[in-house]
Write a protein that binds this DNA or RNA. Structure first.
Lengths: 211, 211
DNA sequence: TCAGCGATTGAACGGCCAGTCAAGCCGAGG
DNA sequence: CCTCGGCTTGACTGGCCGTTCAATCGCTGA
């Protein structure tokens, strides 16, 4: 009902359902997500959900992977278009800081990430997906680092993979606090901290405009 | 049966149950934890659990807070005894890197933390507890930083709170990957990375022995 | 010895929800 | 116009657990 497209096409039910599931999980949390919620969100009957997916469990795992995949694709497509490595990194940080671009509410992709983590601890399938997703995330940063080192934008010549790990981990750790609405770790502070640490680790000027 | 003390004393049932709950949650995960599991672990009947706690939900939240509290107390007590700030930090890192001290299995305190995060996203009570716990964690690091700055062990004179945030976030982010058994982020690598970044941020020599 | 009372038990209840299924819907192709 | 087959429905079921409760236990103090 809410998302339903023009009924006729019903393009890809499979994907529609994944979208609906991701939306429901984001707002209610994995634990409070019922099949009927997803059905309602997708504008179909509960029975249909199980017609397309073998079980609720499988659906939830797929939905989580799918959503994070989407985020990655969106981000990487956008970043590839930016010529300067420094600007690429800046944009990556903009996109990673929860609430910074205000395209979503407080609960954005990061909320899903946490659900992925919990699930991955016990579900080997999810664990595998998570690892792939995470390696891609680090690789994306490592690529930017390599680019900047090659172009001379970044002064550091340290191992790009190690630098990527450090930056990625810092972002992860900070994002958690921000998403939790921690009074001491605001959106703005996280952004500032990320930029400062990155410029320190990679050896570039945080502010490009001035001078 | 498993944990039950000498039956007679039955010191503090309340606490015994919290302990049992934390243990069950650690090994099965919040989602798979039943009241009967906790009862079994504590060696009592399911009915008794609800005699001491108003509801399963309340019990779970309390157990999570309790467990993290225990970890903090244990850690801080141990660290306070160490004279050198550099050694304090080293010890803190030792204790924070999952699996480094091999006192626990792969699933240790960090697994509980992730459960706390998921819960805190929707449960205001849990959110409040989490914030307190987290601030304390950062404050503990900030104290070490201040100590090292005062004694001259650390060369950096930057804001201790900001340094603590950076170190804490890095540890959080890395610990997640380690606990997930990520092939690229091993226990040893996390430890090395933490020590290197810390020594860089705080300006001290990572290896004290040599020279 | 016994009454009284908190602690403890475990059987039973009731609600909830994943998953099933028999029955309709509807477009395509003949 | 009819038939076939995939899509869709929603009522139903079976099991699972949180929670309740009446009954028992066993200590303590008189």
């Amino acid at each position: 009902m809410s998302t339903a497209s023009s009924k006729q096409p019903a393009k890809d039910r499979h994907q529609e359902i994944l979208d609906a599931a991701a939306r429901v999980i984001t707002e209610r949390g994995l634990a409070e997500t019922r099949i009927s919620d997803i059905a309602e969100q997708a504008g179909v009957s509960p029975g249909l959900i199980l017609y397309y997916f073998d079980s609720k469990d499988r659906l939830l795992s797929e939905a989580l992977t799918y959503a994070n995949d989407q985020f990655y694709l969106r981000t990487s497509r956008e970043i590839r278009r930016i010529p300067s490595a420094r600007d690429q990194l800046r944009r990556l940080i903009d996109l990673s800081v929860p609430g910074y671009l205000a395209e979503f509410g407080r609960l954005d992709e990061w909320a899903l990430w946490i659900e992925v983590w919990v699930r991955a601890l016990r579900d080997p399938e999810m664990a595998k997906d998570r690892e792939v997703l995470d390696q891609r995330w680090r690789a994306q940063i490592a690529d930017i680092v390599r680019g900047g080192q090659a172009s001379g934008e970044f002064g550091s010549s340290a191992d790009p993979e190690e630098l990527a790990l450090r930056i990625a981990s810092l972002i992860d750790g900070l994002a958690i606090q921000v998403i939790m609405d921690d009074a001491e770790v605001t959106t703005e502070r996280m952004h500032r901290t990320c930029m400062e640490v990155a410029s320190q680790l990679l050896a570039f000027e945080p502010e490009p405009a001035a001078r």
